[in-house]
Design a protein around this nucleic acid. Structure first.
Ligand SMILES: O=c1ccn([C@H]2C[C@H](O)[C@@H](COP(=O)(O)OP(=O)(O)OP(=O)(O)O)O2)c(=O)[nH]1
Ligand SMILES: [Mg+2]
Length: 787
DNA sequence: GGCTCTGCGTG
DNA sequence: CACGCA
DNA sequence: AGCC
């Protein structure tokens, strides 16, 4: 609560500046970017930095420049392919801004975009775009949550978007505002309400005691807002010494000795690492500082020789490592709440592939012939992170016997006979699995899946996700593999022997399958669920644009909530959007809404160009009852290169922005490489209706597909991802290569399977032919759910 | 002891 | 180049 | 972690 309060303040205090500066903003934008890259490369390259960075700078400058010049003839697009990229005013235009408030005064902003809008030709009045929004707008014009707790005020969004720029947002004004905002905040410390000042009367001395490092600076300020005093000099008034990670106990003492001639720390001085204040703030209470996680490096913990006593006084002693309390709920309802469940059941006519423009759908009866491929699937999983391995991994908790983890292949499994509860399974399967299959995996949300190993599958999925965040890639991979292996089982696996025979399930997983069967839960998982660090990482990685590396970086910097990020971190454009629409982007889309979203895009497309074909891929094509996003594939007869579709894309996007459907751009066709890009990622909003009473931002992906690559693209965009990887792996074992453009043969690979030769095209147009060429029996989209 | 898919966009 | 996402 |  407290925080949210203060947050709102920040938010409100910002004012939209007037109109004027956008052009400057662009220039600035370019400069900024240039500087950024300079720094970036300087950091990365050790040698030849100059050369490289200047080279890149030029390159970027070139891009930027060309972009800027676009303001000229918006309408006439040269047909030559090479130039296409520049034609996309990619980032510059101040465009679709997001939830940031735009006070009335800001209205003038919109307009004079450097980009002359050409929509003279597309001022489609697809009726009522604005209607919905106005009502909203009038409601609460001023209030602006930093990030939505629920569907963010569509009103403001709509408005900003209304300035029709297309493609990617620009930072321009928004960025400057952010900067100003930050500057302001830094100069003055505002305290939280008195009762919440957990550090009241405490004096912190930091080590190093300066705010040069940005991270430390932020932390110090944060502590001050919660009442802490920041000691500028070393002395007895200090209550806590906050030491950076990286400074060992020994080096600290050496330093004190050298600088202050102190041999030991003052009595009752509390010595902790930098995580302590952060966690106190997070949990809104003064935590016990004598916990292992707050110890300095090189300070031995309870076990070894105790270094010089730190706080001889009172608080030493007792508890070794008590696990801290459970995190109180989140201040900002990061979590999503129940969304208005749009007519979930109303699935009109779900499906059938009305969207399928090509594959005739017959039911293959030969699922059995898929065996060989099934095998590949098992082998396919993998993960991109390198194994940092170390089997330990566990910072095991207080309880010791958590040893289960690896262990040995003991034969403890002997006594497993156990009551059989087969009732569950027996009657459930009226018809054949075929139908069942499709249905069951259809929605991740349709709980009661017919699969008898459902509970185990869920547990493994959760564990896999945990391992991914832990960068234990091999384990992540193994559990994902285990999941798909279990999915293919039709009976509940009850014993170790039974389990270990399933390809993809080895000793460790087999043991856990049994554990699930016997106890209904996994100790390992129960433990993982309590990891406070993991909970935060989980929260951060759910932000679009934030992966494990960044989440970890932020965590280590002391950030614990979305509000921390908003206040202290330099976010990328996309991350900003990801936070602003955190709940929306993490809310799944009911199939009925998918149908409707598809219609909107298809209608728009055919109006612009009747020859264009639009197909929905992704989980929708696989028959899912809900989807995480909506994936469109766009093609046109006789096209052989995406460059032939770029102009159409541009028009489509502009139009959809204009009617208020598209509300943000997250990734746009490259322009940075020669092979002219092929995808557009962004966000859209379904018009408000009776069934969809509240606007919800949805992730939307558009993929440009030349007709000659339709089959390969269909495979790629239909997934699922694990299925794709399996297929690609199989291809590679056959000296072939499969990507979204086609299947190539005679691919030469070097060490590490690195591609050496591009290979020659085998097939790209026909989905089935690609399956055939790979020796894989045809699988309907529904049968490609393996992950 | 090696391999675990391959490519596009951002900063 | 490092990263995130399809 | 599991497979080759
Ligand atoms: O790592 C990946 C991720 C995705 N894809 C392909 C398959 C996938 O079906 C398609 C679309 O991706 P998306 O992330 O939208 O997945 P989805 O299968 O559509 O599921 P969701 O319901 O979460 O959107 O892109 C891959 O090949 N590899
Ligand atoms: Mg999808």
């Amino acid at each position: 609560m407290v925080d949210s309060g203060s947050l709102n303040h920040h938010d409100q205090e910002e004012n939209q500046s007037g109109s004027g500066q956008q052009i400057d903003g662009h220039l600035q934008d370019a400069l900024t970017k240039e500087d950024y890259f300079d720094k970036l490369y300087a950091l990365n390259d050790d040698s030849e930095e100059e050369e490289i960075s200047t080279g890149i700078r030029d390159f970027i400058q070139k891009c930027t420049k060309s972009v800027m010049t676009t303001s000229e003839p918006p309408l006439s697009l040269p047909t030559e392919e090479r130039r296409i990229p520049p034609e996309f005013p990619t980032k510059k235009v101040p465009g679709i801004h997001r939830t940031r408030s735009a006070p009335a005064s800001g209205t003038s902003v919109v307009k004079e975009t450097p980009l002359p809008r050409k929509h003279s030709l597309l001022r489609y009045d697809i009726s009522t775009p604005p209607s919905a929004n106005t009502s909203f707008e009038s409601k609460q014009p001023t209030q602006n949550p930093v990030f939505q707790e629920r569907p963010a005020g569509a009103g403001s969004e709509r408005r900003t978007v209304s300035d029709p720029l297309f493609l990617k947002n620009s930072e321009g004004i928004d960025n400057m505002l952010r900067k100003n905002q930050k500057r302001k905040r830094e100069s003055e410390i505002k305290l939280v309400p008195e009762k919440n000042r957990i550090f009241n009367k405490l004096t912190f001395f930091y080590m190093p005691n300066n705010d040069i490092a940005k991270i430390r600076k932020v932390r110090i300020q944060k502590a001050q807002t919660y009442g802490a005093q920041w000691a500028q000099v070393y002395g007895n008034h200090i209550t806590h010494m906050i030491v950076d990670k990286g400074i060992t106990y020994q080096s600290l003492m050496d330093h004190l000795k050298a600088k202050y001639d102190e041999d030991k720390l003052p009595d009752r001085l509390i010595l902790v690492n930098e995580n302590y204040p952060v966690d106190c703030i997070h949990f809104r209470t003064l935590l016990n500082p004598n916990q292992k996680q707050y110890e300095l490096q090189g300070m031995n913990t309870t076990s070894q020789s105790q270094a010089p006593v730190v706080g001889p006084g009172r608080n030493d002693g007792k508890q070794e490592k008590q696990r801290e309390h459970t995190p109180p709920r989140d201040e900002y309802s990061d979590e999503e709440e129940s969304h208005p469940g749009v007519a979930s059941g109303a699935s009109g006519n779900p499906n059938e592939d009305r969207t399928d423009s090509s594959p005739p759908r017959e039911v293959p009866k030969n699922l059995e012939t898929n065996d060989e491929f099934d095998k590949i699937i098992e082998v396919a999983h993998n993960t991109r992170f390198l194994p940092l391995d170390d089997s330990d991994s566990d910072t095991h908790t207080t309880r010791d016997n958590a040893s289960e983890d690896d262990a040995d292949s003991e034969r403890d499994r002997s006594p497993i006979r156990k009551p059989v509860k087969r009732q569950l399974r027996s009657g459930s399967k009226p018809t054949f699995n075929q139908a069942n299959f499709a249905c069951m995996k259809a929605g991740t949300d349709s709980e009661s899946g017919p699969n008898p190993n459902d509970a185990t599958i869920k547990a493994f999925q959760e564990l896999a996700a945990f391992y991914e965040r832990t960068k234990q890639s091999w384990r992540n991979m193994a559990y994902r593999k285990g999941v798909s292996a279990l999915r293919r089982q039709t009976r509940r696996i009850k014993s170790y022997d039974e389990a270990i025979q399933i390809p993809g399930i080895g000793d460790s997983l087999a043991t856990k399958v049994v554990e699930m069967y016997r106890r209904g839960k996994l100790e390992k998982l129960e433990y993982a669920r309590l990891e406070p660090r993991d909970l935060i990482l989980q929260k951060f990685t759910k932000i679009y644009g934030v992966g494990i590396n960044i989440a970890e970086k932020w965590y280590d910097a002391g950030h614990r909530s979305l509000a921390d990020l908003v206040a202290n971190v330099k976010l990328t454009e996309n991350q900003q959007i990801g936070i602003d629409h955190y709940d929306d982007f993490n809310t799944r889309i009911p199939r009925a809404e998918m149908d409707s979203l598809a219609s909107i895009v298809k209608d728009a497309a055919s109006e612009l160009d009747p020859e264009i074909e639009v197909t929905v891929g992704g989980s929708y094509r696989r028959g899912a009852l809900t989807s995480g996003d909506i994936d469109f594939m766009i093609t046109k007869p006789n096209t052989t290169h995406t460059s032939q579709l770029l102009l159409f894309l541009k028009e489509l996007v502009e139009h959809l922005i204009e009617i208020g459907f598209l509300v943000a751009a997250l990734a746009v066709p490259s322009g940075r490489r020669d092979d002219s890009g092929s995808k557009w990622h962004g966000a859209c909003v379904h018009p408000v209706t009776a069934e969809i009473p509240t606007p919800i931002w949805r992730r939307i992906d558009l993929l440009l597909v030349p007709a000659s690559e339709w089959g390969a693209a269909l495979i790629y965009f239909t997934g699922d991802d694990i299925f794709n990887r399996s297929l690609r792996l199989k291809a590679s074992t056959m000296s072939m290569r499969l990507n979204q453009r086609g299947l190539y043969k005679d691919v030469m690979r070097g060490p590490g399977r690195v591609k050496v030769t591009e290979g020659s095209l085998v097939e790209g147009r026909d989905e089935r032919k690609i399956f055939e060429a790979l020796g894989v029996a045809w699988r309907t989209p529904e049968q490609r759910i393996v992950g």
